[in-house]
Simulated assay, not measured.
Amino acid sequence: MNLTIENVSKVFDDKKALDSINLEFTTGVYGILGANGSGKTTLMRILASVMKPCSGRVLLDGEDIAVMDYRYRDVIGYLPQHVGLYKNFTAEKFLLYIATLKGLTKEEAKVKVADTLELVGLADQAKKKVGKFSGGMKRRVGIAQALLNDPKIIIVDEPTAGLDPKERIRFRNLLSQISTNRIVLLSTHIVSDIEFIAKEVLILKAGKLVQKQTPQDLLRGIENKVWSVTVKNESEITRFQSIYKVGNIARVGDSFQLRILSDVKPHLSATHEHPNLEDLYLYYFDEEVA
């Protein structure tokens, strides 16, 4: 299976949300990393076939998805950033309703809904109204509805926004679990969502694709750019912040330890640190972080 994006652009009121994007996906998890306004959601909506590009096209195994129409929608599962749930429906009733919309027979729907609720860890909550669910449970109902048609392509946009760390980990592990023989596209600005599960990470900035590599290769690109410096007071912190990209600031006894991104050694006492994806995010999106 091969999902290809050819020279896709999208413009809103003279603002270019996507600028000549070219990509290719095969089975596995892909993390799409970017700050707010980078074009992530626009790209996801185009891939989910709920928005058309101004130019370019998307192909599935060489066939234009615009020509495929419903045949393409039959093989995708989409979880948007804000999914509408009927708060007075139970989880089971809501999923049965969605299964009917997706063309499953009554018997197929009954079996598939039960299996999917088990998969997302909500089997014991099937008879409870979704309006009483936590944010994490609602997101799990969202991914459950995306899985009902056994999709080959799963598209999830900012799935862990607003979730506590425990639910983020649960959701991340779930996406990794369901990625076998599927293409999973995960859009996020939370680097920990993709650090351990992504086959490749795509970095979008101002509508442009600036990187597409494995997490390991991306980190190798900044391997000698991450430093640790210990300073004594807040005025020194301010001075370093005015010159360098400063990530973490940690108090250690009476001093402060700064994590700095710099092409050159920022201080005689500076020592190298192993980079992580948070460093990578700061490297590309320091303006947004600031």
Rank of each mutant, 00 (worst) to 15 (best):
M1A: 03
N2F: 11
E6R: 13
S9V: 11
K10Q: 09
F12C: 07
F12M: 07
D13W: 12
K16F: 03
S20A: 13
L23C: 08
F25G: 04
T27S: 13
I32F: 14
K40W: 09
R45L: 04
L47K: 06
M51K: 13
C54K: 12
C54N: 15
S55R: 12
G56W: 08
L60N: 14
D61S: 15
G62K: 01
E63P: 09
V67M: 11
M68D: 14
R73C: 05
R73M: 10
R73G: 08
Y78D: 05
L79E: 00
V83R: 10
L85A: 11
N88I: 10
F89Q: 10
T90P: 10
A91I: 00
A91P: 00
E92H: 14
E92W: 13
K93N: 13
K93E: 15
K93T: 15
L95C: 07
L96F: 13
A99N: 04
L101F: 05
L101H: 01
G103D: 05
E107M: 10
A114R: 11
D115N: 12
T116M: 04
T116G: 05
T116L: 02
L117S: 01
L117Q: 01
L119G: 04
G121H: 03
A126P: 09
A126M: 11
K128T: 11
V130Q: 01
G135Y: 06
G136M: 03
M137D: 01
Q145F: 01
P151F: 04
K152Q: 14
K152P: 14
I153C: 04
V156S: 02
E158Q: 04
E158T: 03
P159F: 05
T160A: 04
T160V: 08
A161P: 11
G162Y: 01
P165D: 00
R168W: 02
R168V: 01
R182G: 07
I183N: 00
S187E: 04
H189F: 03
H189C: 00
S192C: 11
S192Y: 12
E195D: 15
F196C: 15
A198R: 08
K205L: 02
K208S: 11
K208F: 04
L209R: 06
L209D: 06
L209E: 04
D217T: 15
D217S: 15
D217A: 15
R220I: 09
G221M: 03
I222W: 01
E223V: 08
N224K: 14
W227Q: 01
T230A: 12
K232E: 14
S235Y: 05
T238R: 15
F240P: 02
F240G: 03
S242H: 07
I243Y: 09
N248P: 10
I249F: 12
I249M: 09
R251D: 08
G253R: 00
S255R: 13
F256A: 03
I260R: 06
P266S: 00
P266V: 00
H267S: 10
A270P: 10
T271K: 14
L277S: 10
D279A: 02
D279H: 02
L280Q: 09
Y281C: 07
L282A: 01
V289A: 06
A290Y: 04
